[in-house]
Nucleic acid binder design. Structure first.
Length: 483
RNA sequence: GGCCCCUUCGACUAGCGGUUAGGUCACCGCCCUUUCAAGGCGGCGGCACGGGUUCGAGUCCCGUAGGGGUCACCA
């Protein structure tokens, strides 16, 4: 059975990179009828952030990446939080010690810094020379027993090479002398990533490790660990890293990397997932709008490209708009908007009214949050007047007064009726339609960017429109009073 | 810097030896039009470079360049 996992660290907000890798892991597991699990890698006590785990799990659920096993849902191979598995790592580190494949090292951070500097001068690529290998076993055990702080390091081969097989790139060879004696167990008793990931992936029966390319060069270390334990290694897939517009790895400094940011800005989870999926994957028929189910059906590693994709928020916005106007049903779109209206303190009355508004507004906003900004006047009689709208108001004040009388005489604001009345009104005065429309638009919305006038009038209704015209004239008087 | 990975329009990508190198975003123009959008149509724009292999390379190989990653008791 194919089993994939995602292993986020609770060190901050939920990262889009986690979602990105999560999508491919999820899809590959589902494609194969396998299992997708979440494991929390909280082995760094210094970087641990309270609440981060909850944020990450919430984000994964929001995106629709439901997992079969995880810290909050349990599973057959738990616990799924590394801080709760410390005994396991110690036991396995001991096993390596017993086999003579690992050793205790007692250097202080200062000593290590000195060693690193020294090696750096010699032009060597990494930071430890394996000198503690020379400490006699008995002495090391005695010092450890005496409570001397130390770490346990992996004894890596001194010659030869390690060949890693990446499913997306093929065989990659690393010279053994470039693989350092990495720390397996830290002096605080916590494991490092290398030990924890191998022990957990093995125990949790992970068959396919899908992760970011930044892990590629550490794979030989983990492969060595699998060998040391005598376990079968999983298949490795290293996905390219998401890039920021400049080209560097997407980070806090180079772009918006928090999933929460996108949720708060009014992006739809479906759109974010869809967009992230197109970062490296493409459908056989080149369609760009597709959901997880479609991706699962069409997925193949051959359709994954390896160039680092640049995360383009502009295209994400376009795609989000596409979802709002073409993928979501009208009712669904209305429901998604409600929380945003609420947090803006706006009331929409009936669902029917909201849907009328959304119907005409749908082609005009790309994020849920943007709707609130652009459709405010539908929900607030105290809508503000934009400077350009005020200008139209001034220019068309006379026309508007006459138009108001006309509108007041109409029995109702059915589109056919208002259209006939207004076009006739303009024709009678030999006015271009816009000379009539713009002042009216400005008056009843405070804006010059709105849906069509006839639908606007119908949705707002005669009563509200007449009141708004009154208010607009009042506003006009204030403006003139100021001058 | 050592090592590793990557390289098609500005961005995301299709292409798996023979194509006028296709699509999407962005940009520009036109159409529609009462504004703003959406939509339709059209345009701009690319195989990093140099060697090979081959009758024939965007497609295969090598090199160069460029970009990225990684060199922690962080993951």
């Amino acid at each position: 059975m194919v089993k994939t996992r995602i292993a986020p660290s609770p060190t901050g907000f939920p990262h889009v990179g986690t979602a990105y890798i999560g999508i491919f892991s999820y899809v590959w597991a589902r494609k194969n009828g396998g299992r997708f699990i979440v494991r929390i890698e909280d082995t760094d006590q210094n970087r641990y952030v309270e609440g981060a785990e909850e944020g990450i799990l919430r984000a994964l659920k929001w995106l629709g990446l439901d997992y079969d096993e995880g810290p909050d849902v349990g599973g057959p191979n738990g616990p799924y939080r590394q801080s709760e598995r410390l005994e396991l790592y110690r036991r396995y580190a001991q096993e390596l010690l017993d086999k003579g494949l690992a050793y205790r090292a007692f250097e202080t951070p200062e000593e290590l810094a000195a060693i690193r500097e020294e090696l750096q001068k010699k032009g060597l690529g990494y930071g430890y020379d394996g000198r503690a290998r020379n400490i006699p076993r008995a002495e090391a055990e005695a010092r450890a027993a005496a409570g001397e702080p130390h770490v346990i390091r992996l004894k890596t081969p001194e010659s030869g090479s390690v060949v890693v097989y990446d499913e997306l790139r093929g065989a990659i060879e690393f010279s053994s002398h470039e693989i350092p004696d990495v720390v397996l167990l830290k002096s605080d008793g916590y494991p490092t990533y290398h030990l924890a990931v191998v022990v957990d992936d093995h125990l949790m029966e992970v068959t396919d490790v899908i992760r970011g390319e930044d892990w590629l060069v550490s794979t030989p270390i983990q492969k060595l660990l699998y060998q040391a334990f005598g376990w079968d290694e999983p298949k490795w897939y290293h996905l390219p890293l998401l890039r920021a517009p400049g080209g560097a790895k997407l980070s806090k400094r180079t772009g918006h990397t928090s999933i929460d940011y996108y949720r708060e800005e009014g992006f739809l989870p479906e759109a974010l997932v869809n967009y992230l999926s197109t970062m490296g994957f493409s459908m056989p028929d080149e369609r760009e709008i597709f959901g997880l189910e479609e991706m699962i059906a069409a997925f193949s590693w051959e359709r994954v490209s390896l160039g680092g994709p640049v995360f383009d928020e502009e295209k994400l916005r376009w795609m989000n708009g596409k979802y709002i106007r073409e993928v979501l049903s009208l009712e669904e779109a209305c429901d998604r908007l409600k929380p945003f209206l609420q947090s803006a303190g706006l009331e929409w009355g009936t669902d029917e009214y909201l849907c009328q508004v959304v119907t005409v507004m749908r082609p005009r906003f790309e994020t849920l949050k943007e709707f609130v900004e652009k459709a405010r006047y539908f929900f607030d009689e105290d809508y503000p007047f934009a400077p350009k709208a005020e200008k139209e108001l001034r220019k068309g004040a006379e026309t508007l007064r006459e138009l108001k009388e006309l509108l007041a005489g109409l029995p109702d604001f059915a589109p056919e009726r208002t259209e006939e009345a207004i076009t006739a009104f303009a024709a009678a005065r030999d006015l271009k339609l816009r000379k009539v429309m713009q002042p009216l638009r400005a008056a009843i919305t405070g804006s010059l960017a709105t849906p069509g006038m006839y639908e606007l009038l119908e949705i707002l209704g005669k009563e509200r429109v007449m009141k708004r015209l009154e208010r607009a004239f009042a506003h006009l008087r204030e403006l003139e009073g100021d001058q």
